[in-house]
Design a protein around this nucleic acid. Sequence first.
DNA 1: AGAAACATGTAAAGGGTTACATGATTGG
DNA 2: CCAATCATGTAACCCTTTACATGTTTCT
Lengths: 192, 192
Amino acid sequence: MSLDHALLVSLLEKPSSGYELARRFDKSIGHFWHATHQQIYKVLARMEEAGWIESEVHRGETAPDRKVFAVTPAGRSALAEWITEPSPIDRARSELMIKFRAAAFDDPRKLLPALAEHRAEHGTLLAAYRANEAKEFSGHDRPLSPQQELQYQVMKLGIAFEETWIAWCDETQALIHRIAPTPSATATKETS
Amino acid sequence: MSLDHALLVSLLEKPSSGYELARRFDKSIGHFWHATHQQIYKVLARMEEAGWIESEVHRGETAPDRKVFAVTPAGRSALAEWITEPSPIDRARSELMIKFRAAAFDDPRKLLPALAEHRAEHGTLLAAYRANEAKEFSGHDRPLSPQQELQYQVMKLGIAFEETWIAWCDETQALIHRIAPTPSATATKETS
DNA sequence: AGAAACATGTAAAGGGTTACATGATTGG
DNA sequence: CCAATCATGTAACCCTTTACATGTTTCT
């Protein structure tokens, strides 16, 4: 399982509370591994018991208390061991693609709203990545550090996927209009 | 949940036994929704009880008996209803990307073997898709039917993703060689 | 005879999602 | 004062994965 390791990486990058991790998982790292706060708290507890991380309570004079976790040497070496293990390729999962195959037996135009929504969401994501890219990896005088190069490379895959999605959505919208142009005929064999 | 609906689509395309479905889920439709035979048998049982599918046992004179399932009108309308429901975008999940962020704290060269494996597997997948593409969607005299166009469009997304992966793998391999060229220095701070 | 593929399942364990629960602080 | 955000969890349910189980047919 990888949520453990994803959290270790996030904590190496910056010691944080569960709440902060949950928010970060909606952003950069979250593009390749999503997690809710409920899951995160459970895994943090497990890893603390295993000695991979340590917590320190930061009393908030004015704000709520925060339990800030940091990676221990044991956690660090567990991570180092993990990266050498072979990892299987991750299978994509798309409900929308199943719906497209289903639509072959129904009216493809029914998918146009869903398609437009996907197109919009992927567009929003891409814009967010592009903004982050400009802020963190471009416009600097000095060349990027090896660390930054690697992080940027991961981000580039995210960007490439979003671009792939967007191009596909546009192409598909055109296709549907081409193969099912008439805005009548509610289909599914009323002829029987 | 979508495995139910993915199976319905598969059964609409061709009535099949659980075993056949399991094999098909390692191929075309499986690229966007994976499932093992154990899962499939359970879902088939559930859907039969719900009246979405019906089974007929084909006694094999020589081969083992096969329980062949077909979609009922109830199942068909359940599917028609489902495609109009909104579907959230599916989050990608990649262990390898987590490892890349982890490698920023270790030696990136450790990822070269995993990278090569991924590159090879995505290459194999792409070749399989290309072969299928040529067989089913190209080289025909008549233009494709709307059904085929939709199936082809789904496949095109799969192909695009594989190409994205492959390009990224190649680029990344070059990057690692550039930022960590020396085949010594086992890293992780032996200086303390 | 033995291995591989065909064919259909059950069971246990673990991961993930959704709902529930609590309490403090900040901003309108 | 009420809503939103910060902050940390528990519990139930469902899905997924892995292991186990059984029996047949085909090919070598």
